[in-house]
Design a protein around this nucleic acid. Structure first.
Length: 430
RNA sequence: GGAGUGGUACUCAAGAGGCUGAAGAGGCGCCCCUGCUAAGGGUGUAGACCGGGAAUACUGGUGCGAGGGUUCAAAUCCCUCCCACUCCGCCA
């Protein structure tokens, strides 16, 4: 959500931003917003005036009672009753209009960074840099779930019977690998100075509403029957909700956290889960990084954060590239965003493994996360988030890039301490 | 899950229908005292959110866990929910 004053006072900026995002005119909505906002403020003013009269009159009634002037008091009571009737109408209208205003404001996208490339959708995202050579070996790389099965490491059939489509059993070396990359990612981020966090995996409806749109809630969140609890879709939900309505001290910032959690997603909508293997599933685990900082620091943190992802994947011998999201592919709250994509030697293309975003104050404004500066002034914080690692999808990249012709999989040096010192793992069937 | 107690500003805490933006204290600012420290005395100040306003001037409203209700008037009375603590039960 952006500041409504921006529309009021710097309309051109908002207009240009809308053009960049949608490349077509959605400008009438701004006129509508300005008009509604004007009405709401007038209603508020009217209401305030009536409330003022009510308050002072009520005080007078109290005094009259003390002086035993009962008749006069009763007359005033009638006055206030009439005021309350009028007030009720005003308040009703104000409530309706504010709601409408809020809905409209919600779909006004955050102002995007000047250097975000202009484009209509993800097909116009721009590759900025490659890290590591995207090698295609001269032997065939099997489908990732076949690699897993060669280690007896994946059982989707049983998972289907027990839990349904979209679930999986990981076993043996593959399960160990899963835990190993998470533990490695955790320690990697701790070494970068981030605080390791384990959040609640279920949150109240109120917290859900604070961190996502209704549409998202419907399509993603699993609800616990008979309880006011939802399974989280990412630890970001818990981690951001933690700061809702808080005023932080300047000395608290930056807050740099790396949170772990299982993630549960219904995956209703566009792609569904009709895909072989573990690319799109109802349950996965994720190590995440979340940063809250002062506004002047968010650009710097953004660059640090995506670089951490690149660095981590390179230590696991996985080639990656940085893909800059164009204007049309940016979610409404984002100021800028990039994907870190891992190389798939089987598909001979890159696929998304991390998504790094600077939301500037858009999220903080929605959630009222503020910082009180040393000079006493308050401002909204900036929030950023990025994936560190999200297996088992991440294991697809890992297995394909470390796969040997004989079916074994190399364990990169960095990960060996987490895999019992093994330099490679050997399949038990082919 | 049962029984009880409680939720008031940055923190602790008083208040039990109108005189309460909300006593008091800590904190914070300034001054004083005392070899240093620990501590003491005096004095002042703020507070969250939304408006009007050029305004850090002035000013109106909201706000006492959340949401409803009663009333001319609610931190205070009633209902629902949430949270914390103590005891019991159950359990890794």
């Amino acid at each position: 959500m952006i500041d409504i004053n921006l529309i009021r006072n710097n309309r051109t900026l908002v207009e240009e931003n809308l053009k960049k995002k949608y490349q077509e005119s959605k400008l009438p909505i701004l006129d509508e917003i300005i008009e509604i906002d004007k009405k709401v403020r007038q209603l508020k003013l009217d209401g305030d005036n009536f409330r003022q009269i009510r308050n002072t009159t009520s005080d007078e009634i109290g005094k009259l009672y003390k002086e035993k002037k009962i008749d006069e008091a009763n007359n005033k009571k009638e006055e206030v009753k009439k005021i309350n009737e009028k007030l009720l109408e005003i308040e009703k209208e104000e409530e309706q209009l504010s709601l409408k205003l809020k809905e409209k404001m919600m779909i006004i996208p955050n102002i995007i960074a000047d250097d975000v490339p202009i484009g209509k959708d993800d097909s116009e995202n721009i590759e900025e840099a490659k890290f590591g050579d995207p090698i295609v070996p001269n032997y065939e790389i099997p489908y990732h779930s076949d690699i897993m099965e060669s280690f007896s490491g994946l059982d989707k059939d049983a998972a289907g019977r027990v839990s349904g489509n979209g679930f999986y059993y990981l076993m043996g070396d593959i399960a160990r690998l899963h835990s190993a990359v998470l533990a490695y990612a955790r320690d990697f981020m701790i070494d970068k100075g981030f605080t390791y966090c384990i959040p609640p995996y279920m949150i109240h409806s109120e917290a859900v509403d604070g961190v996502m749109s209704f549409q998202e809630k419907e399509n993603m969140m699993y609800k616990i029957e008979g309880e006011d609890l939802y399974l989280i879709g990412t630890s970001e939900h818990s981690m951001i909700a933690k700061f809702k309505d808080q005023i932080l001290k300047e000395s608290d910032l930056p807050i740099t956290m790396t949170s772990y959690s299982p993630c549960f997603r219904k995956e209703v909508g566009a792609h569904g889960i009709e895909e072989r293997g573990v690319y799109r599933i109802h349950q996965f685990e994720k190590q995440e990084m979340v940063v809250l900082c002062k506004k002047e620091d968010s650009d710097e943190w953004y660059n640090k954060m995506w670089n951490y992802s690149v660095e981590l994947f390179r230590t696991l011998d996985i080639p990656v590239r940085k893909l800059i999201c164009c204007s049309g592919d940016l979610a409404d709250l984002k100021y800028r965003s990039c994907d870190i994509e891992a190389w798939s030697p089987r598909q001979k293309k890159y696929f998304e493994v991390c998504s790094c975003s600077n939301l500037t104050d858009a999220q903080a404004r929605r959630l009222a996360i503020r910082v009180k500066l040393e000079n006493g002034e308050k401002e909204f914080v900036h929030t950023l988030n990025n994936t560190v690692i999200a297996p088992p999808r991440m294991l697809i990249a890992f297995l394909e890039n470390n796969y040997n012709e004989d079916g074994s999989v190399n364990i990169p040096k960095a990960l060996q301490p987490y895999m019992g010192g093994k330099e490679k793992i050997i399949p038990n069937k082919r």
